[in-house]
Design a protein around this nucleic acid. Structure first.
Length: 546
RNA sequence: GCGCCCGUAGCUCAGCGGAUAGAGUGCCGGCCUGCGGAGCCGGAGGCCGCAGGUUCAAAUCCUGCCGGGCGCACCA
């Protein structure tokens, strides 16, 4: 049994014996300081009023009733708090259970195989991915990993907007580069794409087409659009591959329109009286529902806006059978999120069908002049270049080590460091170090045949007991990181584990310690397992050697 | 002006109703004859942006203000 549940059950039994009704949920936490025990409960505060005693009196009675429980060495009542000190044997049992679970440890089936879509990156094919997209790629991928461990059937999806005005501008920008390569410099269109990445493609097309397209006209538009989109997709795929992200499904904006979903959504919204016509365009009545302004759904030329198609896309997601959809998006999409959610509510989709994981932007520390990025202005650092420089592991780790809604300062120099100041190396090194100890144990013939049947009673050092207590937390960390869209909690947890292990390793010898050796190796096996699981969820390697 | 997010140690950030507010880094001072020193230990450093309120209890919840980010296009 998990330790927290063990404590809860003990409290429940004690309450029962005292004739007190248990609260709906019995709170059990980790105390702020180790001298306050392994677990603490503030249950007495919740019961004091009803019981007619002070919190401290209630706590004292409970402590008295709990002292007979075999799980605890001591139970203290302090200022109304109930503090539990576990017997080492209770902790040893936990370690044994973790080892028995193996790689399944931390997984659950509570998602019940429900179909979940995580949509992320979804960058327009107008250029390579920047480090900003990198944060989203890492976040989306890690969230997908976490939720898959909770038993959801996860689909990673990329929404590809390969039509519309931006693509046209891109095509025209490419055409200008093409003319430039032919010695006929043309100005880039207003709001066009200035990035260098179009220059070699322009040169390539100059060779391929010669002077076939001297004018920017309807035919040139068609041809250059056809040339540019697949090439941009290549660049994006290279970036995704660099950071190690694969998508299961790519959906194009054009697919949604062709399915007739735009017309259908419009019809449904009209039936609800949620749209109106003004200046020849169709608007969504968002203000009437508390939003700041009414957005356009259908332009006066009859074409749908991005928002319109996005709403239709989400209806499509629903029809495709997803039970839950998580969209990872940057802070510049806040208004749109409110509008889409409103529209889905009006369309009668279930509340909670769509969740947004919103993240703030990334700035790069230690790289002058490229802090402010813009794809259109051609001022950015390409994701692949960053990965090439600092490595996939560090890139992924750094991108998720802060909570998404916080602005992220990516410390370029720190990420590159191959020393333990770098948190990702600190964690990986713990894993490697254990692997190294195991190799040494094998060489010396000290490795037990079966770690599961090892006598764990020699595990009595404070760090040993603390480590087991921390290993016990892993499933909670996975759950919280997944449901709160907070993968940084996993980073923090892994750093805490490594932070207990490294000093322990420095102080206590593992090998050649008689009966303590197999017990310590079993502990390290449990730790290695959890480090591996945690790093894998982050998509970061857990090396045997480095 | 309106909407969302963020103001916690010099810096980068955790903590988001509970007991003396934490980590990493930086700074100061210790420790290298054994399993990887790619390390370990100790210390200094905080009106938790400001002001009210709610609560037995507020960094945490509410209100207002101040500072920063993002958005407020018939762009995507």
């Amino acid at each position: 049994m998990r330790l927290e549940a063990l404590v809860q059950e003990s409290i429940r039994t004690a309450l029962d014996r005292l004739g007190l009704a248990p609260p709906a949920e019995i709170p059990v936490d980790r105390p702020p300081r180790p001298e306050l025990g392994d677990f603490t409960s503030r249950v007495a505060f919740l019961l004091a009023k009803e019981a007619g005693f002070s919190p401290q009196e209630v706590a004292q009675r409970l402590a008295q009733a709990l002292r007979s429980s075999p799980a605890f060495r001591e139970v203290h009542a302090v200022q109304g708090f109930l503090n539990f000190f576990l017997r080492p044997e209770s902790l040893h049992g936990v370690l044994r259970a973790i080892l028995a679970e193996g790689l399944a440890y931390g997984k659950s089936t509570e998602g019940q195989g429900r179909l979940l879509q995580v949509e992320f990156v979804s960058s327009n094919p107008t250029g390579p991915l920047t480090i900003g997209h990198g944060r989203q790629a890492a976040l989306g991928d890690v969230l997908a990993n976490l939720l898959a461990d909770l038993g959801f059937r996860v689909v990673r999806e990329y929404y590809l907007n390969d039509e519309g005005r931006q693509i046209e501008l891109l095509a025209q920008s490419l055409w200008a580069r093409y003319r430039e390569a032919l010695g006929d410099p043309q100005p880039l269109p207003e709001g066009g794409y200035h990035g260098d990445y179009l220059i070699p493609i322009g040169r390539e097309l100059a060779e391929k087409f010669g002077n076939a397209y001297p004018e920017w006209n309807a035919e040139a538009k068609k041809v250059f659009r056809g040339e540019v989109v697949p090439r941009m997709l290549r660049l994006i795929e290279e970036d995704l591959e660099a950071i190690g992200v694969r998508f299961d499904v790519w959906t194009r904006e054009g697919d949604i329109i062709r399915k007739g979903l735009v017309d259908e959504v419009l019809r449904l919204l009209r039936e609800k009286g949620a749209v109106y016509e003004k200046d020849g365009a169709i608007w969504l009545s968002a203000k009437a529902h508390g939003l700041g302004r009414d957005p356009v759904l259908l332009r006066s030329d009859g074409t749908p806006t991005y928002l319109m198609v996005d709403i239709a896309y989400h209806l499509d997601k629903f029809r495709r059978g997803f039970d839950w959809v998580v969209d990872v998006q940057g802070a510049d999409h806040i208004e749109e999120q409110q509008q889409v959610k409103l529209a889905l509510r009006l369309l009668g989709l279930p509340e909670g069908f769509l969740s947004y994981c919103l993240h703030q932007f990334v700035t790069l520390k230690g790289a002058e002049g490229i802090e402010k990025m813009s794809t259109r202005a051609g001022r950015f650092l390409r994701l692949k270049d960053l990965v090439d420089e600092v490595g996939r592991d560090a890139t992924r780790y750094f991108m998720v080590m802060r909570k998404p809604e916080s602005h992220l300062v990516f410390d370029f120099e720190l990420a590159k460091k191959q020393s333990l100041e770098n948190p990702v190396y600190y964690v990986q090194y713990a894993h490697t170090r254990i692997a190294s100890v195991f190799r040494e144990a094998e060489a010396r013939g000290e490795m037990p045949e079966d770690l599961l049947s090892v006598d764990l009673s020699p595990l009595t050092e404070p760090e040993e007991l603390l480590l087991i207590r921390e290993l016990d937390r892993f499933p909670d960390v996975v759950r919280k990181a997944a449901y709160d869209f907070a993968p940084h909690l996993l980073c923090e947890y892994l750093e805490a584990l490594a932070g207990i292990f490294h000093p322990y390793y420095a102080r206590v010898r593992i090998l050649g310690q008689g009966a303590a050796t197999p017990a310590r190796l079993a502990l390290l096996a449990g730790l290695k397992l959890v480090l591996f699981r945690g790093l894998s969820l982050l998509g970061v390697r857990a090396p045997e050697q480095m």
